[in-house]
Design a protein around this nucleic acid. Structure first.
Lengths: 200, 200
DNA sequence: TATTTCAGATGACATTTGTCATATTTGAAA
DNA sequence: TTTCAAATATGACAAATGTCATCTGAAATA
């Protein structure tokens, strides 16, 4: 019997997947988490074989949970299940040594098959990701991402400079560099692109 | 037997809901649409009793489909099933005379109950919506929304003025007015707020 | 009819944003 | 050890953005 935990913040999908996977002869859904913290807790206390993990969840993202578990040397096999094929997310997931990265696009039958496959030690990655993975690397430095994240939050150069203890001019330079690197014409486009690619 | 069509672009949820609702004794899922156009086609040709409709879908939004069906005097009862409790969406849905507006947060059992209830002529609205509905009205005029949508798209005042045959100054005035109405400090915050509330 | 409202425009102004050249320091890589 | 990239800074400038007061003409409405 494969013991699994489902971590997914959208109630309807969480419930539906839970019911459907529980119908499978060899799979048992032992817990359902609605945010990252719950997921971490369930995995640490229940030690499931597999965790089906959404990325964008409240309190803690699925990627953060995977990274913590890796550091702790957990034996639970993580399968990321998400909507977006963002290269940034995928790369981070691979680095966190997840056993699968699937898109919320296939059927639940395929999902059950992937779970069995992962239990046998295989890795399951959505084909869309394999091709889109190596190209489209994040061209931004850590500092630039930090700045862009705050800009995306509506902060002005001056506010950011105060938070980061930089001069306002430096913050402007970063934005200029970001805009140039992303080949866009202003900060708003930069935000769109970076969010779309999962770079910030 | 209640004949239903499911319109939902996310494959996993569509499939899972389809399977689960089909397990119900009195419900038959006769078609699954993955975008608005398909949904419209299925409803017009198959004449289901109920359509479970997502809002944000490719090609045509669920709200557009509902509006078209109302104009055509369709008998199919529409139940909107969406993630966001945006007052803007809700208001539009009510005007399109939908029979239900539920959030993707409840369980699939509750969903089945709501479908039965709607078949009996009742209207099913998520309680979160009822309270959030009348307040938080969209303060923006049509023109302002138009401008803000383009700004959110990364366009500059000059580009927008060319598209709308306005002067660049007028576009700036609109943005100024928008920023003031939304009580924010710049265009980026204005975009965030308006998108969050479903105003653009 | 008189009044108000709305879309649109202008001009002036301050502020913010984006670009560029250039410089220093520091740590990592060759 | 030299070299290079990253982080930081400054100053100058152009362009875009945000604010305000004011104006017109058309449409709605009291």
């Amino acid at each position: 019997m494969i013991r699994i935990v489902i971590a997914e913040d959208q109630g309807m999908l969480r419930g539906a997947l839970g019911s459907l996977l529980d119908f499978e002869e060899d799979i048992e859904v032992i817990a359902q988490a609605k945010n990252g913290k719950e997921a971490l807790y369930f995995i640490q206390t229940l030690e499931p074989d597999v965790c089906l993990m959404d990325i964008e969840m409240p309190l803690m993202s699925g990627l953060e949970v995977a990274e913590i578990l890796m550091k702790q040397g957990s034996n639970c096999k993580i399968i990321i299940l998400t909507t977006f094929a963002r290269p940034g997310y995928f790369e981070r997931a691979v680095k966190a040594d997840v056993h699968g990265y699937l898109l919320k696009d296939g059927s639940s039958d395929e999902l059950a098959e992937s779970i069995r496959s992962v239990m046998k030690g295989k890795r399951e990655f959505a084909p869309e990701l394999i091709f889109g993975s190596m190209k489209d690397e994040n061209p931004l430095t850590e500092r630039e991402r930090e700045v862009l994240r705050m800009v995306a939050d509506g902060k002005t150069a001056k506010e950011i400079s105060a938070i980061l203890f930089l001069s306002a001019g430096t913050v402007r330079n970063y934005m200029s560099e970001i805009i140039s690197k992303l080949h866009v014409k202003n900060r708003i486009e930069a935000i769109s692109i970076a969010e779309e690619k999962g770079w910030i």
